[in-house]
């Protein structure tokens, strides 16, 4: 995305970046949200150190998750997945009912 040239050449061949569909963005977002929430809980709420044995567990886990989430988001930004335009369709998993594409369906 930062490089306009790759972007347009990818578009010329019919491809584009996966964007929000990139699973790293989804993982990164969830981990970052969880991280920030835990961080806040560790800073402003009862840390219940009798349970954890004297460690502010929420704070440290929150910090780790926030960092991990950021790593995923940055990774997705730096090396975006280019989706080619002409991939064959994924056959849907027959063991999981999904909204099905039916030829000529109503």
């Amino acid at each position: 995305m930062s490089d306009k040239k790759t972007d347009t050449s990818a578009e010329a061949s019919g491809g584009h970046t996966a964007g929000a569909f990139d699973i790293r963005n989804i993982i990164g977002a969830l981990l970052a949200i969880y991280g920030v929430l835990l961080l806040a809980a560790g800073l402003f709420m009862d840390t219940e150190e009798a349970k954890t044995g004297g460690v502010n567990a929420n704070l440290w886990t929150g910090l780790a998750l926030a960092v991990a989430g950021a790593v995923f988001l940055v990774w997705a930004r730096l090396k975006p997945i280019i989706v080619p335009a002409d991939v064959e369709r994924v056959e849907d998993d027959p063991t999981r009912p999904a909204p099905r594409r039916r030829p000529g369906g109503h």
């Binding site: 929000a20 569909f21 990139d22 699973i23 989706v83 369709r89 994924v90």
Partner: peptide
Amino acid sequence: VMARRSVSDSIDFFLSGRSLP
């Protein structure tokens, strides 16, 4: 919801799925 939408109007979601690392 993303999966459902992509069934009706585009196949982005499934294409992204195919290029999973």
